[in-house]
Design a protein around this nucleic acid. Structure first.
Lengths: 345, 345
DNA sequence: CTGTTAGCGCCTTCAA
DNA sequence: TTGAAGGCGCTAACAG
């Protein structure tokens, strides 16, 4: 009969029991020395530490977790496929987690509510101490429920919700206003807005920013210029084609994320449109290649890496004090002027 | 006194004991039903399954791991900072791991041997069932040792070593030859080679490919044209500046990865060099933005995502049969012709 | 085919 | 200031 698991052959690990024997004390003393959970005589403590040193003791998180009822692992549930944004976000998370001595368990959501629910359930099963999540449009009825049921420490990243959880994102509306205002200042009136996936808070906030700027300038929004690129590369291409097929083309376009801007630029190239002469382009997210295309892309640079790090910090606080009132952090994006807006970067 | 861990407040989980009681059988029977580790009467089995269903039982991997002496988690130790390559690789890994029911624990190596050793040790402490690693230049004396000591199942990704472990990478030399041959065919003779970080196997193999192609064409290599960009963005920029500062500039350059090509293109732009007229460019890795810069980048597209997936498959096999002889998988890269080589893409 | 039992390594209450 | 002992939830001998 096939054995279940059982990872034989690995070097036998040094356990607390061995350390206790070596130091001539009890296991409980060793445990308390390690965790500082009760006063130990300086003398004894030293003995134990030396024994640990000699034997090369390292903790076994799984045993500790079982006994303590909680791990030192945090879960991360985000879409992993493709866009530079989430990838950099993840790098930020991992770095700060390491600093805080958390292990990181990842589960891709593919930006799909059902997958997201499964991902969260999986993380819960692994007894993660808390989790970071970049919620999908349909998370409320799935993942959110699971999290609440388990009273899991949780921080929302990027896509914020109604302040029920800790969360960290950027000032989407404000940044978008700045960008669209810039286009208006340069005389554009037919400004298109290529928004992201329906239902994401970032999508809504960026659209709101677009409308606010247009309103403030007294320019009526032509609704045929407000299209969705579904937050993806291919979606952006499709959306841009649609805009170009309009009887009266826009003279400028605001694109709500990096993936879509890739697709949009492709469509523009295919159509032989010149940027910024035929159409000016600005976008949210400053992708790494933003200065390599010509003209360079005028964009909002998000502090993506920092966002990941701050999220972990919020989570650590939440774990420390589960009763604290949830806080929302809005980081500021920064405009990078290059040539695509017509500024000659 | 502060309590250690203890994650109170979470909903009490359904345990196997509860299922056993509900089904009127013993825990061991429940365990065997779940794991299929011994024959169970169809009748009993059904009882158990129904009980699980009613109670909403879910496994507790940490308890299972402690008892079984091994987890169902695999560790991933790769550099996470920046380059699209490792990010896509990771996406490939995560996807296949999910399919195989592995949880994924990540630890950034930052491409630094010491960090890498720490990352591996950390994964070992978490009792990962096996790990995937994209080894740094100095891994032999650090991480490799730890892995051997613990007899850990391990698959090397991208940067291959001397067949002591299972490994999967691409045909670096062959692909590079193709690319450089292409430049030679177009009449270039002063072809520069911007290589990656010293000591990485990919670096060596790509340099070897460059030399092989030059040799085959009977062109002597001008050693001043073989420079290192340290595999990074900034390194690539520096290296390209150096090439441009040469008394006799190269007429073409082969760049050994995507990050460096970003830096190199920047340097080229700054210097006002026209591609491909002043200098033709080809590179290893086909970055997502390869068709957005103008002219588009002629490049080797690696099957990065697939590489991650295959690595997980190899690992699964290795875990299944620890004694099998290690296998090496070489995936094929594909040339994408665009304008930067002078082909008018 | 199934139940009983002994741990896995660690944390923590209770006694001393 | 310390030790002894029980238990976290699960797996896997060992007996029926």
């Amino acid at each position: 009969m096939r054995r279940f698991l059982r990872n034989d052959g690995g070097m036998a690990a040094v356990t607390m029991t061995m350390v206790a024997r070596e130091a001539g004390v009890s296991v409980s003393t060793v445990s308390h020395v390690i965790n500082g959970t009760r006063p130990v005589a300086a003398h004894t403590s030293r003995q134990v530490r030396q024994a640990m040193e000699r034997l090369g003791f390292t903790h076994q998180p799984v045993a500790r977790s079982l006994a303590a009822g909680a791990t030192t692992t945090i879960g991360v549930a985000i879409p992993l496929s493709g866009d530079p944004f989430h990838q950099e976000l993840f790098a930020g998370i991992e770095g700060e987690a390491r600093r805080q001595k958390f292990a990181v368990l990842v589960s891709d959501t593919s930006d799909d509510p059902e997958r997201e629910r499964a991902a969260v359930a999986n993380l819960v099963a692994h007894h993660v101490r808390g989790m970071l999540i970049s919620p999908t449009a349909g998370w409320t009825s799935g993942a959110a429920k699971v999290i609440r049921e388990h009273r899991l420490a949780c921080v929302l990243v990027d896509r914020l919700q109604r302040a029920q959880f800790d969360q960290v994102g950027v000032e989407n509306e404000r940044a978008t206003v700045t960008l669209v205002e810039h286009l208006l200042t340069k005389g554009h009136r037919r400004i298109a807005c290529m928004s992201g996936r329906q239902g994401l808070s970032t999508t809504e906030e960026r659209i709101a920013g677009y409308r606010a700027a247009m309103d403030a300038a007294g320019v009526a929004v032509d609704e045929s210029l407000v299209v969705s690129g579904d937050s993806t590369d291919t979606g952006g291409r499709r959306a841009m084609r649609a805009l170009l097929a309009l009887p009266e083309r826009p003279t400028a376009v605001f694109i709500a994320n990096d993936s879509m801007s890739m697709g949009a630029l492709r469509a523009l190239n295919e159509a032989g449109c010149l940027i910024p002469d035929d159409i000016a382009v600005v976008c949210f997210d400053d992708p790494p290649w933003g200065d390599l295309c010509s003209p360079g892309l005028t964009a909002i640079a998000q502090p993506t890496f920092a966002m990941g790090a701050r999220a972990v910090q919020l989570l650590a606080k939440r774990i420390e004090d589960p009763e604290a009132t949830p806080s929302t952090l809005r980081l500021r994006g920064e405009v990078t002027h290059r040539g695509s807006c017509g500024c000659r970067g």
